[in-house]
Design a protein around this nucleic acid. Structure first.
Lengths: 220, 220
DNA sequence: TTTTCCATACCCGGATCGCGGTATATTTTT
DNA sequence: AAAAATATACCGCGATCCGGGTATGGAAAA
């Protein structure tokens, strides 16, 4: 896998946001040691980085810590996404808990690297990101996958019949019983009967509960 | 990153499910060329693989194609997960469309590799998977991330006040107005007023709609 | 062929909801 | 200091919902 060679006068601009001075400088050196990358903008806070972007600097990649004084890195992503949508944000942090990962990726981070393991192949990760890939080590990737499976869960089976599922669907779409009856061309009483059966099967006692359960458990 | 060395008599068992004979054999060779891996079980269908597992074979890793005669690979994952929960499934396919990736990962795949790009580092990916990581190239990882951001969208702001959000939360949790009043130690009339304001802000006209909208747009 | 499941339809009484008001006291903003 | 926003509380009417029934015809399963 040979990365496309970048002319020296057209290197990829990487911005670094990291409050620890020593670490910041060491990462900056690492970046500048890669011939395809350069970093002339390294800041100790999101606020400082945001100012630089507002003044017209548009880095291809923003390497950003999470635990920062003032605005944290997750919030930071949102601001950078808004100010400079083309810039790709990559988290670089010691935290590998689900919440931080989840939030960072939800706000549009293009990668999530751990400080512990990143120094060796950071250059490779950066070029991956540039070519539209995502920077993630297998450990983080596994956590992301776990969220997926958790989120899209077992899909419990309550033994709903076809008609019942149909009615559940319309209910979730905001129709009341009368409208559902009209839509399906059946009597309101029939809708009522179906709904009662649905209640029994899902063990709930109101439309609210049904809709809530259906959406939370993705029954529809 | 030095992988733990495996004694030769304790290699990792990889099962292959792939209908194309040539490709199957080439992958099998590739696996057997890795000193830490071995593959004595390569089948042309999920059904055959399932039978092997039912007869007592428990591979550490199952490499499985998607497009198969009979049961497809996505369905296959589900069966293997049930028959041998400890076995990790990795998709190996030419399809890189969102639906296939999404479904595979939802059903608990530990990785998703493209045939085009996997042959070189398949051995590394396998050891990653064994150590709890996920096998994914940056291209696939980026698609997974995109699903994340799509899923957790813009988060519209409707200008709900603190109290209103609180009531919305309780409503989504299945409480009716009377219970909410009790929970918050305020009058039922007050809950009513708040709810009316919520309706106006979200532009809906029933609790169903509120719950549905709140869950769909992840307002809570 | 009998039995069970499914979809259909109806009734009623009490509870709950939706919406139209009005009103007051604090807190925040201007 | 005046204005706006927020949280609180109350009333009544008509619509809707919930749970308890009963009932029938057809399709699927035993």
């Amino acid at each position: 896998m040979k990365p496309a060679e970048q002319p020296l006068d057209n290197q990829i601009n990487v911005m670094i946001i990291e409050d620890d001075e020593l670490y910041r400088e060491s990462i900056q050196e690492l970046i500048n040691d890669c011939e395809s990358l350069q970093c002339n903008h390294a800041y100790e806070s999101c606020e400082a980085g945001i100012q630089a972007v507002e003044e017209g600097f548009a880095p291809e990649i923003i390497l950003i810590d999470i635990d920062l004084p003032g605005m944290n890195g997750i919030e930071g992503i949102r601001h950078f996404k808004q100010l400079s949508p083309a810039s790709k944000s990559v988290m670089l942090t010691v935290f590998d808990d689900d919440d931080n990962i989840f939030n960072a990726l939800c706000y549009g981070a293009s990668g999530y690297l751990l400080k512990s393991a990143s120094s060796e192949n950071i250059c490779q990760y950066m070029t991956d990101v540039l070519s539209g890939g995502a920077a993630m080590n297998p450990h983080i990737a596994a956590k992301v996958l776990k969220m997926f499976t958790q989120y899209s869960q077992p899909k419990k089976e309550y033994g709903l019949t076809g008609r019942e599922k149909e009615i559940l669907q319309l209910l979730v779409n905001g129709m009341n019983k009368k409208h559902i009856a009209g839509e399906l061309c059946i009597s309101l009483f029939t809708v009522d009967t179906h709904l009662k059966n649905i209640y029994a099967k899902l063990q709930v006692h109101s439309q609210i509960d049904v809709v809530s359960k259906a959406l939370k458990e993705r029954l529809i």
